[in-house]
Design a protein around this nucleic acid. Sequence first.
DNA 1: AGTGAAAAGATTCACTT
DNA 2: AAGTGAATCTTTTCACT
Lengths: 156, 156
Amino acid sequence: MAEALDTFDRAILDLVQKDCQLKAETIADEVGLSASAVQRRLKRLRDNGVIQAEVAVINRKATSFPMTFIAGMEIERDNYDALARFRQWAEKQPNVQQVYYVTGQVDLIAIITARDVEHYDDISAQLMADNPQIKRMTTNVVLRDVKTGLFIPVEE
Amino acid sequence: MAEALDTFDRAILDLVQKDCQLKAETIADEVGLSASAVQRRLKRLRDNGVIQAEVAVINRKATSFPMTFIAGMEIERDNYDALARFRQWAEKQPNVQQVYYVTGQVDLIAIITARDVEHYDDISAQLMADNPQIKRMTTNVVLRDVKTGLFIPVEE
DNA sequence: AGTGAAAAGATTCACTT
DNA sequence: AAGTGAATCTTTTCACT
């Protein structure tokens, strides 16, 4: 689908991953292209799906869900579509922020936001009730966000 | 610093967390305000730091760092500023995407991007070399992103 | 890829309710 | 605080080089 990214694309992606409201002209000056070339490339990167979304990152402390929990789960591996069903469930849960299917002691790792520990207890109870294919769940309480973001390096 | 968010603020944040390039007029129609009121609130939310950043989310598979690893680490808790020093280090590492300080079996959980397993091995070796306060490190390889994002619910 | 032009939207302002 | 209207800047898309 997406052809390889050239040096200009990577430079543009490096910038918009930090601030996607930058003026095309500012980006153009940084990377050494004209503003319209930057616009064209941004449109192509969006249409290609290289840029999946442009989102506001909000301060967790400003919300009603200031706590974060990281849950490790074991899933019933025998069951063919256990993972697919969990994905569908997670997609609909606003408090389930991220889920990774991993190798190791656990099969799934989820990052979950909650109002407080009681609320997290409710969410995890609901998770187990809605997903019998989840066998076990262990939780780490996040005491501090040391670094957050979704930045992925693109420069070679 | 930040006063409480009202219903309009929350509705706006709910939308811009999914798409921060929405037209002010579109947001206005959704939440029941005028476009200029939406603009004013967005400016205030940005100035307040409630909106911390507006960023492009890119497809990991389109980059040269398509793999993800989740590392659990034990840190020297005796050492007073061991965590602060690790934070400073992590902040400068582009492949270290997220770090959480947690309770439980491990003290730190990091999400790390890498080109391949060899590259991850290099990164983790460098991490241990640069941070002697990290005593032990266990890694989960991400086989699949089940859900990603930084969305935090804001509606009551 | 660059330039220039036209239309649409963002941003900031002053003013009103 | 919210709405309106005006001035200015930026984005977006187009045709053209």
